[in-house]
Design a protein around this nucleic acid. Sequence first.
DNA 1: TATGTACCTTACCGTATAGTACAGAAGTGC
DNA 2: GCACTTCTGTACTATACGGTAAGGTACATA
Lengths: 212, 212
Amino acid sequence: MVQKNSASAPATRGRPRGFDTDQVLGQVRDTFWRYGYAGTSMDQLSAATGLHKPSLYGAFGDKKRLYLAALDNYLAEVRAEFAEAFAIPNLDDSLYALTQWSIDKFMPADDGATGCFMMNTAMTEAGEDPEISRVVRESMESLERAVVRRFQKAIDEGQLPAGVDPNPLAMILVANHYELSGRARAGYSRAELRALADRTLDLIRTVAGVAA
Amino acid sequence: MVQKNSASAPATRGRPRGFDTDQVLGQVRDTFWRYGYAGTSMDQLSAATGLHKPSLYGAFGDKKRLYLAALDNYLAEVRAEFAEAFAIPNLDDSLYALTQWSIDKFMPADDGATGCFMMNTAMTEAGEDPEISRVVRESMESLERAVVRRFQKAIDEGQLPAGVDPNPLAMILVANHYELSGRARAGYSRAELRALADRTLDLIRTVAGVAA
DNA sequence: TATGTACCTTACCGTATAGTACAGAAGTGC
DNA sequence: GCACTTCTGTACTATACGGTAAGGTACATA
């Protein structure tokens, strides 16, 4: 869907691109992350990437396509890191890693942008743009399915009682994820976010142990 | 903090204002709600309110003050409606009313703006604007405290077991509230939102009954 | 009725915005 | 080496943006 560069070398004729697409998309993403979609100008993006505007337009089309490329890039990265956390065998460790990853992502040590990139930028635009709205919805459903699968795996492996319904557990975890994003943006500290996540994990254990 | 007009008549001298402040703020709010803060122009607001720009500037200051006034207006309305739902004696009825109110607000029957006004507009701006960030944080804490108080009241009145901790229950409900907003903006249907809310209320009953 | 005040309206200002035309440079296949 | 393709850089356009100057007007007090 989006042009690739760094990975595949398609052996084209003319002069090869002088920048790395993924790196540029990362800088684009960080800028949108801070200022929002409408609040970010192409000049800002040009300054952040070091590319001149015609290069950006040539490589990505227009502002919206550039944004969607950055969003794709972000979501792919998120999915990969989630998969990594989910791959941890012990359920508690896995969930802890997941929440801690969210906190690290949403509240970076350097003074980067806070909260979830998608929640902070796409939600606003989703109101009037069905294309962005669709991406948001698909992302939400994808996350939810992945979490349900992780709980189901724990049930299958006997880490949770056999009769447990994974869906409410997933619902709690997903809601917590979005809430962490919002609270990070609202200025809560890492410690407060960690405490919130810990209470959520306690709650999940309670519900899982109970509904057996 | 913000100018009032419709309620108090301060007996000023000159020509009285020819518009109703609350009504104008409502139209301003709806416009910001749709397009976001940065995505809304003063010309749009002028068209939406029927007021010319100098009137808007004269009455509210600049774009940001106008936005903050609309946000205050929204949050006051939300608090009032929440208080109404919380005043319902039976806990289940009260929580159902609360969630249904959220759904109605976030997914209006006419094709108005979806999701929570604050979540859809202030979250983006909160990244770079501490004033907006503070409003968001205070609003979140205010909501959480109100929900805790409602559960505590149910405990005091014997509608929930005496030993129950109201905090996890409040955490579930608050997280659900924000999730409803996000999903509404992402295009979920009213039925899907209602189903999500019902599952949340089931979960709260389970947790409350269990942790007794 | 006189007077002061705050309103409404039109027209405007400087700047920032998204997007582009064009010329030149740089790399690749033949 | 040559031709072709694509990138890079500068300069630009037309429009939209937030915000305002200034004159006229309607209302409440006195």
